[in-house]
């Protein structure tokens, strides 16, 4: 039981990381109609921004600020310089241009910081572990990730459901033409939404720094799963992104944690482990295929 609870926590933690990335991606696609493959680059820029600031200043708060600033500014520049020209184009052009951005940002980071992975120390108050499940000391930093992720989810809920900007965002996702017709400055709204997405991706990158390696190409590793989340959740829906992310996080973790063990009952040990590894890495894609079979527009479709 303790193992199951621990794996559920791990799944939850992976889920909220994916949510931070997926929320921005789904908003940008749902409201602006742009497929942004370079979303992972913002995650990388945020992580590098924080890592470098932490190394120079030694302060975790300044690193947080540095990371958010780097991701936010990069996001705004990306929107102003590149994406603005792509709104009217079709998706293939957008995919090509944003794929180019991935290559550009990876090479830029190599030029600026070199190829060696960088490391960020854990903030001093979160180096230990907490026994929230008896007998299982759980790293407190991972609990912090879960807390921050859930707080961001709650904040986004309030922002989108309870504020005027949120109303425009929702309206933009479902009735784009009508919002335009009512005289709302859609350009400004687009820039705001993109900036918000960039900040969330940057935050995910900052949170990832002390646990994972901060390295070139880190964005692409997590971007694929983020797309799975967006497709499962329903494109353009933040609620869908949250549920999709938690679902993918938990399913992926549980499959990795338990499938090899279950197969061991049926097969020879080393065969079971090899097959289990293969099955669990396919798991989330099978899940996506199943969801698409039953609900082709995702669990919470935004454009009803």
């Amino acid at each position: 039981m303790a193992l199951l609870a621990e794996q559920l926590l791990n799944g939850l933690q992976l889920g909220v990381m994916l949510f931070l990335l997926a929320a921005g991606l789904t908003l940008v696609f749902g409201i602006m109609g742009v497929i942004n493959l370079a979303h992972g680059s913002l995650y990388m820029v945020g992580a590098f921004g924080a890592a470098v600031t932490a190394q120079v200043t030694g302060s975790w708060w300044l690193a947080l600020l540095g990371g958010l600033l780097a991701a936010g500014v990069t996001g705004l520049l990306m929107e102003l310089v590149v994406l603005r020209r792509l709104y009217a184009r079709d998706h293939l052009d957008q995919v090509l241009a944003t794929f180019g951005l991935i290559l550009f940002f990876n090479q830029l980071m190599v030029l600026l910081f070199g190829r060696q992975p960088r490391f960020v120390a854990l903030p001093a108050w979160f180096t230990g572990s907490v026994e929230i499940i008896p007998g299982v000391p759980y790293p407190s930093y991972r609990l912090l990730i879960i807390a921050v992720g859930l707080a961001v989810a709650a904040g986004l809920y309030v922002l989108i459901q309870r504020t005027r900007v949120g109303m425009l965002v929702r309206a933009g996702a479902t009735h784009r033409e009508m919002v335009r017709a009512l005289g709302v400055d859609i350009r400004l709204l687009y820039t705001l939404v993109f900036g918000l997405g960039a900040l969330l991706a940057g935050l995910a990158g900052i949170m990832a720094g002390p646990v994972f390696n901060v390295q070139i190409g880190m964005g692409e590793q997590i971007l694929i799963q983020t797309f799975v989340v967006v497709v499962i959740g329903g494109i353009g829906s933040v609620r869908g992104a949250l549920f999709g992310a938690l679902l993918v996080g938990v399913v992926d973790t549980l499959l990795r944690g338990f499938v090899p063990g279950l197969l061991r009952g049926l097969l020879d040990a080393s065969q079971a482990d090899a097959l289990g590894a293969a099955l669990s890495s396919m798991g989330v894609y099978v899940l996506m295929a199943l969801v698409l079979l039953i609900k082709p527009r995702g669990i919470f479709p935004a454009h009803a």
Binding site: E6, Q7, N10, Q13, A208, F212, N213, Q221, R256, A277
Partner: peptide
């Protein structure tokens, strides 16, 4: 137990939990 991780994996929490168990 024998566990194969993924080459593109960055988070090992699930494997670490199995080791602990």
């Amino acid at each position: 137990q024998e566990v194969y991780t993924r080459l593109d994996q960055t988070d090992y929490a699930a494997e670490l939990a199995q080791i602990r168990a």
